[in-house]
């Protein structure tokens, strides 16, 4: 217990990094996921094949391998990356962690959204078309809002998975919550105490995320609840 109290500052900085990496890669992944989901639904092969290849790779390989590839793999191609002006980015473990996590969660989120888009009832689309909507307007007003609502429960899972996946970034030298824990364990050998403590922190974060999603879902489903009796 004294160990945990004595290093609260380090745990706090680890927690900040964990939350930061989660939020940033989540935002980037989300921005990426919407266009990829739409491309996946496109009819022209030049559109859906690249999107399919992307989700196929990132969902089909372990995140740990992707992290190693981005970090140590990039290290081997320093000269080429330097020539392309990209080395300043790839030399930072923080950038590699964000890039890999964003691409990874982007692929999963794209598939979740695609499911959402597929789930929009045909009748609603036909009704919209009957009103004269087409193309972008149809997607913006009818398909996407409905798809988001349908995808939300699955997406909340993805957010939780991502939060927990960030524990892997300590392997490329980042001092996130897990990284801090491992350094402290190395000094104190209090494996159970420290891992149980950070486990509890992850648990609290996870339930906070789930609570936020429950609030959002509650708001978005107002039309499905019975009106309160006057």
């Amino acid at each position: 217990m004294a160990v945990i109290v004595g290093h609260l500052g380090q745990f706090a900085s680890g927690l900040v990094l964990t939350v930061e990496v989660t939020l940033l890669s989540l935002a980037a992944g989300l921005l990426l996921a919407v266009p990829v989901a739409l491309l996946r639904e496109a009819r022209h092969p030049a559109l859906w094949i690249p999107a399919y290849g992307y989700t196929f790779y990132f969902r089909g390989t372990p995140l740990l391998v992707q992290l190693f590839l981005c970090y140590y793999g990039a290290g081997q191609f320093r000269d080429q990356l330097e020539a392309a002006g990209l080395w300043v980015w790839f030399r930072e473990p923080y950038f590699c962690a964000l890039l890999t996590l964003a691409l990874n969660t982007g692929a999963y989120t794209a598939e979740i959204f695609r499911g959402g888009i597929r789930g929009v009832p045909r009748g609603e689309i036909e009704a919209a078309r009957a009103c004269g909507m087409s193309g972008i307007l149809l997607y913006r007003r009818i398909v996407l809002p409905k798809a988001f609502r349908l995808a939300l429960p699955a997406y909340s899972n993805e957010v939780v998975f991502l939060l927990q996946s960030t524990s892997l970034v300590s392997i490329i030298t980042l001092m996130d919550l897990t990284g801090v824990a491992r350094v402290l364990i190395a000094r104190t050998f209090m494996v159970y105490e420290i891992f149980i403590f950070i486990g509890a922190l992850y648990l609290a974060l996870t339930y906070f995320v789930l609570w936020v999603f429950r609030c959002v879902e509650w708001r978005l489903s107002a039309h499905m609840r019975q009106a309160p009796e006057a």
Partner: peptide, 18 residues
């Protein structure tokens, strides 16, 4: 301080100039 899981990984990053 950058902490690596193995010495090999630290060496790799030394070579790549990180």
């Amino acid at each position: 301080v950058r902490s690596y899981a193995t010495q090999d990984e630290a060496n790799l990053d030394m070579v790549s100039g990180r």
